[in-house]
């Protein structure tokens, strides 16, 4: 299935060169987990702190589960904060 992958801040370095403004559409196997997507793009699991699917937080215990549906948007950040 196709999903959209967004990697921001220091995670942007793991994006394929064809990504535009931190965003790329990718094909993943049915049943893939968040961690499998991370591994495929060589994003160290410890660096991906804030993980959202369609803007909703993915709990750490959900990151090995098959939770994707076609068209989902997966967005990730390292630890960030602001004000």
């Amino acid at each position: 299935m196709k999903i959209t992958l967004k990697l921001y801040a220091s995670l942007a370095r793991y994006l394929p060169p064809e990504a535009v403004r931190n965003v790329i559409e990718i094909e993943i196997p049915d049943g893939a987990s968040v961690h499998e997507v991370l591994d495929r793009y060589h994003v160290p699991r410890g660096e991906a702190h804030l993980i959202l699917i369609n803007g909703l937080y993915v709990e750490p215990e959900q990151r090995d589960e098959a939770i994707f549906r076609a068209g989902d948007v997966l967005a990730m950040w390292p630890p960030v904060a602001g004000g």
Partner: peptide, 25 residues
């Protein structure tokens, strides 16, 4: 040693939140 105060804020500033807060609606 903290990832936010040691790395994130100096590199990206508070502006790193722009895409975060937009993504969470």
């Amino acid at each position: 040693e903290n990832a936010v105060t040691g790395q994130g804020l100096p590199a990206m500033g508070t502006q790193v939140l722009m895409n975060v807060i937009n993504e969470v609606g």
